[in-house]
Every structure is written in structure tokens, then in C-alpha cells.
Amino acid sequence: MTWKWESQREQYGRALVELGKERSDIVVLDADLSSSTRTADFASAFPERFFNCGIAEQNMIDTAAGLAASGKTVFASTFAVFGTGRCYDQIRQSVAYPKLNIKIVASHAGITVGGDGASHQIIEDIALMRVLPNMAVIVPVDSNETYKVIKTVAKTETPVYVRIGRADVPTVTDKDTPFEMNKAKVMRDGMDVTLIGCGIMVSKCLEAAEELAKHGIDARVINLHTIKPLDEKTIVKAARETGGVVTAEEHSVMMGMGSAVAMCLVENFHVPMKRVGIPDVFGESGACNELMEKYGLTMENIVEAAHDVLKRKK
């Protein structure tokens, strides 16, 4: 399959500027990375509503809390590695616990950060965010969905973590594809096995489904953009109807999307399952595609996992 590759960050910047025009309660914070996260677009359009906090993510999150407590809808952005781990206490105490209207939109997540290496490749942010009560976790699948996610979460009044990448990603949805928060999107129907992906891995799942089709295997593909709250209904239905599940994520297999799905299925409908993701190790410098290959995030990895699951099906 050939994809059009587009930037999620660009759409984030575009959506923010539109929101800024539509609503005066939107304020944006960044921590000296606005040209990378693309909050700079908002900063140029609405300088009085943009606050650069410098390289001080903890300060940024608590400042966001004060703004949100005063009626503002706050978008706070930086790289995912700094926007989750470095200010975890601030997110816990001042965003999640008081359930404030703050959207942490973090870019440069995952191993596709590439050359910067393990220090910048956060592969545990979904895990960190999803264990926080009151926090929703969304991983937009592509540039189109990123735009829609931003416009949608701006209408909510509670904390949301949105994870986007640095690199351009395959466009797998249309501009008109509706986005429904909290509702997993079935991208392809199938009855033999279910491939559940999030972010860039959804495109790999679609490629894997094509490959499996060549061998007469009919795979369902689900875009699980909202990891919390989890759309258990769609997941359990897929498990029931296909009898086997593979998850694929650009995140550690420890406590990410695959773990969320596994926990759901263990309690609701037990089927053979395999998680494709980064093993419990740190990444390293390299080109995106090299890293995806080395750390087990390819179409072939998903196909292999699907075969394994199919073998274990009764």
C-alpha cells in the first residue's frame, strides 16, 4: 500500500489557530519548543493568549492549572518525554486530581523521534497518563484525525492527554471521516482475526491485513485512538466475532494500549492475543524506518503475530 505522509503537528497548529479565532477562552502554553510543537502558529496569531514558560515544564503545568481554575481552556504543549515524565507530579496533583480543563498535547512521542535517541524517545507516556484518574488518553492516527481530535477535545472540560509524533505519518483517514471520541473506529471488516492499532501502527495493521488477505485470512482492523476511556464494547465484540486479537503500538508493551486491551479481554472475553510493540528496553538513535524494524514495529511483525494467534485459536 502506498500512503500519503503528512504532519500531525501542522494540523495541531492549524486547529489551535482556528480555536483561537472561535473562542476567547483558549490559551496556549509551551516550554521553549513552540516552533517544534507548532504552538508557535497560535503564538503569532494570538500573542496575548500564548505564554512561553521557558524550559520549565513543571511550572508550565501548574501555571496551566491556575489558568484553567480561572475559566480558561488550556492547551499545554512540549515534547512528550518532557510533558509527561518530567512534570508527572504536577499533572497528578494539579491537572488530574482537581479535574481541570487542561489538554496536554505532546509531540515527538515514541521511537520515531529518530536521531535524538533514547533520551527523547518516550515509550512509556501512555502508561504514565492512563493510570491517572480523570485523565483521558488519545493517540490520533494521522494528520486529519489530529485536527479533529484537537477540535473535539476543546469542547470537553476535563483533562486530556493527546499524543502525536515528530515524523510525518501515513494518512489513513479522510478529512470527512467522522471522529468520535471514546469510540474505536473499525477501519476494515474481517472475521478471522482482529488487528488493533493506535497512531502510526494503524497503517501497519492495514498493510498487514492486505498481506493476510493474500493468504485467505480476513483480518479486522481497528483504530483505537482513544485508549482511555477504553471502548470495551467494540473490543469485546471484535474478540467475540474474530476469536483472536493482535495489538500494535509505538510504545512499550508494558502498560500501553496493548495492555489496556489485554486487561479488558482477560476480564470480558478470553481469546488468544499477541501484543506488538517496543519490548521492555530503551530505544537508540537511528532513522525512523530502521528503528521501527529493529524494535519490532513492522507490518511483518504484525502478520507474524496474527499467524501465532490464529494457530492458538480453537
Binding site: V27, L67, A69, Q90, P98
Partner: peptide, 22 residues
Amino acid sequence: MSTGSLGHGLAAGNGMALAAKL
């Protein structure tokens, strides 16, 4: 503001002060 973990209050207050100015 919910507090208890130390060192958060001034930054939260700053957020409120920015909102007042806005």
C-alpha cells in the same frame, strides 16, 4: 487550588494572575 505536594502553589497562582490580566 488543590495543594499538598509542595512547591506548586506559586505557579498555580501565576496562572490565576495571568487569567486576571487577560
